[in-house]
Design a protein around this nucleic acid. Sequence first.
DNA 1: CCAAAACCTGAAGCTTTCTTCACATTGTGG
DNA 2: CCACAATGTGAAGAAAGCTTCAGGTTTTGG
Lengths: 188, 188
Amino acid sequence: MTVEAIFEATIQVLLRDGMNALTTTRVAERAGVSVGTMYQYFPNKQALVYALNARYLDALAARIEVTCQEQSGAPLGPMVEALIETYWTAKTERADITQALYRSVAELNNDALIHAFADRVDRATTEMFSSASDANFADTSRTNLSLVTVIYGTVRNAFERALSEREVTDLKQDLKTMCRAYLANVTV
Amino acid sequence: MTVEAIFEATIQVLLRDGMNALTTTRVAERAGVSVGTMYQYFPNKQALVYALNARYLDALAARIEVTCQEQSGAPLGPMVEALIETYWTAKTERADITQALYRSVAELNNDALIHAFADRVDRATTEMFSSASDANFADTSRTNLSLVTVIYGTVRNAFERALSEREVTDLKQDLKTMCRAYLANVTV
DNA sequence: CCAAAACCTGAAGCTTTCTTCACATTGTGG
DNA sequence: CCACAATGTGAAGAAAGCTTCAGGTTTTGG
């Protein structure tokens, strides 16, 4: 489909030349369509980048929701590990795309996008944690916020450092350790 | 000083209008100088943004180094709390600037900048942790990497969610808890 | 006080990019 | 096979930005 080709081309250009070089002409060329076609699907360049990110975040949220449902009722330890695993995998299996998108959102008015995503995902994780067989939080939403902020933040920062495979494995392991240790502390 | 005015103007424009609207004309205008003057100090626009970030990261690294020296020889618990406190404060005391810079680096070829910063700071924190009165790591550099990645990542992610003051306080507290709990696990 | 250096000015050239629109091509239902 | 809708084309207009440079102003040091 044309739209799909345009999205793919956008990612390619973003990867190859960065956000500065992301021009309508270049995207259209790489997508194998004319500029006019692009404007039939997106009112302007910003809308294109916005749509690309929305699409990506939607897919990511959906994956997290699946994990949360799968883990419903499980003990907290496996739960948090599954969440880390899902998020980490989703971000790293196409690391190049993740990186490209991280850069492209920076110059968007992305607050609405980010918050909608955060709200949706928070709802899923909060519900999951509440359902844990050993759930007994003093403050569920606080614990949820701390966990997800630490996890998502760590993954993102791991991207900015060029870590070796070994370092990534170790870091992921340690993140799990930290989250489990934290949960042991905050459950009554 | 002129250069300082230009830097300040760059931040202002970045804050008010975002990276898209960061034009040489606008920066010069806001700085109260002519465009020509700007080009006497920076060979081009990118160099300006680069220099701004370099300057900021240098100051941040210096602050972290001070904390690391102050904490030399202390126990691990206070150490990691001091690191969190320093980093968090440095990032939040001028949250607007932090946000503006996070956005501006995105479209820089920032790898060199980021890695130089990471190396410098990692050296300081690794040395600090090694000096701890109760230091006894199986793998010092691994533990260091895990701690700093989690801490810096969490702070960054906290920025993207619009957290209330209460949530920030709680999150910081929980981050400290997590780091201490982690340290208790990895020290022999 | 003066000459040289340092610093500043901002209009204009050049380039690049976004966006439009009149027209061409392709697909579809009868 | 035809008429009509949907889709695609790409040259050109319009706007905006980066950078230069010839010349003005201020500072410095003797």
